[in-house]
Design a protein around this nucleic acid. Structure first.
Lengths: 254, 254
DNA sequence: ACCTGAACACCGTTCAAGT
DNA sequence: ACCTGAACACCGTTCAAGT
């Protein structure tokens, strides 16, 4: 399959006269198909998912794709690593889109919140990139359109509808941010040894300055289950609050 | 005032025979008082506030304090730059503490939310550091105690009280995150030229795939006023929702 | 024109040498 | 013991040279 009849000793420009090994004993001709932008962005996202944003360096990415560092720029046709990050951001925005958005604002907002949460949990590094106009790209734009569609049936004035969108987005991002914070860099290499944290915590409580924390017992780390519950609970509170903005129910709370 | 009688030509070990300038024409003897941990952390926070987290490098910080890079580690008694960031994080947590926390859960949570928001707007880089156990330090611990104190009067079961805390924290962080995102790196150097964004946006809308965005008119950038309103509105919705968790009013929404 | 090796100006941190 | 200069192994990116 792999082995083709060898035609001559030096007919390949990959072979030099002093090269003694037989062609088929060496790895495939390194036919580096030039990577596409998509394949590079996908590789970068995979890398970030697996090892965190810090692992995404131009050199490392090149290694991953069996290319030279500077080729990343050429192949993906980006002018800087920043632009590559922009592409990664928008890729994840694509994961935040809900397939069949319900008509009603309440299930629609709930669906968006849950879909967004799932995407962010799958790509936690996305949060770290906030502050870079994360909803600017094509998928991000579609996401904004989706949010507008979700609140169409919310019977409130335009500012209230906009506030509802922002509030829900905001809530999701905040939830994930704190969830990631609590599990800490624990996943990302365990910056602080668990034992050290516990001992320090005991030491602080021993001062007597934190009666309520002390009363709460030995700070159990929040479980994934807890976080699911907090998310569901908070979201329902939010939706309940927003529904009070409905015109029939009265003026927006203020 | 500055000039003191010159006592001799070489009596200072800062002066060498070939040094021709007069003592008082040169800057003060560079009496580098060894910096304290506090002064170093304060300088780092100032630097981050003024030029962003990226500007906080060991070398730059040393320059700022007229010290050698490696002295930062000695003076602040930190083992890595990561630990310095931990100190910076906790410093900001100190700014999130409310002086006189109201008794009632509702004004208490509102006060915490507003105080937290003010601190985060003053130190926007804090958000980027989430994921590092931001509430682990002494001030962070006090902040957690404060949150527990705030919900004491909330007549709901423990999980609901915890959810209320998480939800409010979460909301604030999310709000700031999106606010920073919208103003983008605009402040931080303007990654994307305003004109380019507008043109790209027009181009996307021209596809007809975004009827609601198109109908909303030329995407006005959100003003600080808008953000204040969204924050206030969202917070009230949230508090209204939480109040539905009060035992007399019925079981927590679900 | 497209691709890329070498080099540049950074970074955090190690380490051995200073005092 | 405390402090620090030089060096190391990185980083993103420039640039000139290759094809």
């Amino acid at each position: 399959m792999r082995g083709e009849p060898r035609r001559g000793r030096y007919d390949s420009d990959l072979m030099t006269p002093d090269e003694e090994s037989l062609v088929w004993t060496r790895p495939a001709p390194a036919r580096r198909l030039p990577q596409t932008r998509e394949s590079i962005v996908a590789a970068a996202v995979r890398l970030a998912d697996a090892e965190g944003l810090a692992a995404v360096t131009v050199r490392r990415l090149a290694e991953e794709l069996d290319a030279r560092p500077m080729s990343i720029y050429s192949y993906a046709r980006v002018e800087s690593k920043d632009e590559l990050l922009d592409l990664m951001i928008d890729e994840v925005c694509g994961d935040m889109l809900v397939e069949d958005l319900p008509e009603d604002w309440r299930p629609a907002l709930r669906a968006i919140a849950e879909r967004t949460r799932a995407a962010l949990l799958a790509h936690p590094w996305w949060i770290e990139l906030i502050g870079r106009n994360v909803l600017l790209g094509p998928h991000g734009t579609r996401y904004r359109e989706q949010s507008l569609a979700a609140v169409r049936t919310l019977d409130a004035d335009e500012p209230a509808r906009q506030a509802a969108i922002v509030t829900v987005q905001t809530f999701v991002v905040g939830q994930i941010a704190f969830a990631l914070d609590e599990q800490g860099a624990a996943a990302a290499g365990g910056r602080h040894p668990e034992a050290a944290i516990r001992q320090y915590h005991r030491q602080l409580l021993a001062t007597g300055d934190f009666p309520l924390l002390a009363g709460a017992g030995p700070a159990e780390p929040t479980t994934a289950d807890d976080r699911d519950r907090y998310f569901a609970q908070g979201l329902e509170w939010l939706l309940a609050g927003i529904s009070s903005a409905q015109s029939p129910g009265g003026r927006p709370v203020q």
